[in-house]
Structures are given as C-alpha cells and as structure tokens.
Design a protein around this nucleic acid. Sequence first.
DNA 1: GTTTTTGCAAACCATTTGCAGGGTC
DNA 2: GACCCTGCAAATGGTTTGCAAAAAC
Lengths: 147, 147
Amino acid sequence: MVDAGAFLTALDASDYRMTAPRRAVAALVADQTGHFSSADLVEQARARRLGVGRATIFRTLDVLTALDLVERIDLPTGEHAYVACEPRHHHHVVCSRCGRSQDIDDAGLRAVVRGIARRTGFRVDDHRLELFGLCQACQALPPEATL
Amino acid sequence: MVDAGAFLTALDASDYRMTAPRRAVAALVADQTGHFSSADLVEQARARRLGVGRATIFRTLDVLTALDLVERIDLPTGEHAYVACEPRHHHHVVCSRCGRSQDIDDAGLRAVVRGIARRTGFRVDDHRLELFGLCQACQALPPEATL
DNA sequence: GTTTTTGCAAACCATTTGCAGGGTC
DNA sequence: GACCCTGCAAATGGTTTGCAAAAAC
C-alpha cells in the first residue's frame, strides 16, 4: 500500500501526460497490498468499471516502471509480478504468503558484487537480488492459515 | 558448455525414464555456450532433425530444472532464458553480449541475506541474485564488435 | 503388462500492435 | 492545433494440454 499522491506527483513532473486512465491505474496500483499481476489490475479495473482497457493497463505499467514507481519482479514460480516501490530502492523481500514486499537497502550487497566482479573478471553492470520468505505477520500466523 | 555425461548420470539416477528424446535434449543443452531460450532449442532440434517436438523440449527442460541441471533465469529485458549449471550453485553472472554465464559462489551473500532478514523481520527462505555485465573476453573486444 | 513419455495439433495465456477517435498541452 | 493517449479487436509469441501411439521399466 502506497500513497497514491506520490504517483500523481511523479507523473505530473514527468513528460508523460496526465490522463484520467493513468490516474485510475495509478490509484489501483496504490491500493495493492502486495505484489500483483497485470491480470489482477485488469480484473479489478473491470470490477470497478473504470473503463480502462487491457492495453492501457499494460502501457501504464510501463510508464510507472519507467518512472521507477513500480518494479517488475519474477516470482520463484516464474510468474511475472509487479510491486509498488520507492524510487532508488531496487531490491525487495517478498512474502510468499501475503505477497507484501518491503524495500531493502544495500546491506553490504555492493561489496559482494564488487568481490564477484573481481573474482570472475566480469564487468558487472546490473544486478538483481530478490528475497522470498515470510513476513513477520505471516510468521505469527498458524501454519495452516490461508490468506 | 557442460559435460553431457553429467546430465545422463543424473537422469539415470532419478526416477525419470531415460529416453532417446531426453538424451537428445540433454546433449543439445550441453552444447549451448551461454544462456539459451526454449525457442533456441526448438530451432536447433529442428535443424539437426532430431525429431523431438516442441512439447518434449519444454517438458525435458522442466525435468532438467527439477534435477538442478539447468536453471531458468530472467534477463534484464524480461525474457526468460535457461543456463546449464552445476547443482548446488545457484547464482550466475551472465554476459550481456555473448550470453555466457559463470556460476558464482556465496561470496558473502549469505551474510547479507542474514542481515536483511534480521533487519526486516522476514524469515527468508529463498533468494536469487543475478548479475549482468560483460565477461572478460567481451570487454577485450572493440566496443562495436557484434557477436 | 503397466506406467511413463512422445509428437502432433489445438488450446491457452499474457502481452503487443494497428488504427481511428478523443483528450492534453 | 499538434501530438499524445485511449479503447478495441486482432495479432503475436511463448508455453501448456489432450490424446492415441510408442517406448521404458
């Protein structure tokens, strides 16, 4: 769950045009509690009768991704998903049960990457770290609890 | 490029049946120098007239993945790809130019993950680190060199 | 002989694209 | 007013599935 205002501010500051469909999708994204798929948004948009089409949802997700307001992640299952996030942070811990994600800071990763580069001889341009597990709240739940 | 024998040994030791199509796909995978897509295999299988169908290639990739002989990775572009790898190693540096990948050891990552778990309160069950850049050989090439 | 695996073609799913109309700057 | 954005529907590309025949154990 993210403040929808941040999306609007960022959209406004960008070269993209501020349109009703984009506002609608941004609000939808802000409402998501955990990671979500494009299909989730399409379905919710239809349920709420927002009148935005599939294509626009995909296109808006691209825009939000370009603005670093949303990041596309790959779940352990291989499915694609998105998470809303703060610009500048680029790694997440994702809860396998509730889907909630949390941004994480560098935490020494930078040094690890540097070490790997040195040892392999690669020039490392980009890296992605994704963590999966159970968030605190979900750990506290009885093992069989379903969402 | 990986020893094809390792695939056969692992297949043999598993509960999966050893069949000609699986041997063929395993050999194909062993021949790949870098990461490869399912489409690559399909095309090569057809070029070599191996007589294995699309479906079997996908199914065999699943088998090899289950045996940890192959790992599915997600390129920065969002495309899916596979890399042959040693069981037990689960991180790679992938060259963006030639596609070659190299397994990397823990390199302090374990400690980073532990730190993140402590700080976020998550119980981290799984993690994935993927590095992208240029391998030594490709760095040495003139910038405009094409594959 | 039973169970797994295969190839084929069709089905499926997520994502992209072409285009004419409408909205934004 | 020029250019960007939208919805729609059709196209696309990758992956899965149903099924009867073939192969492995």
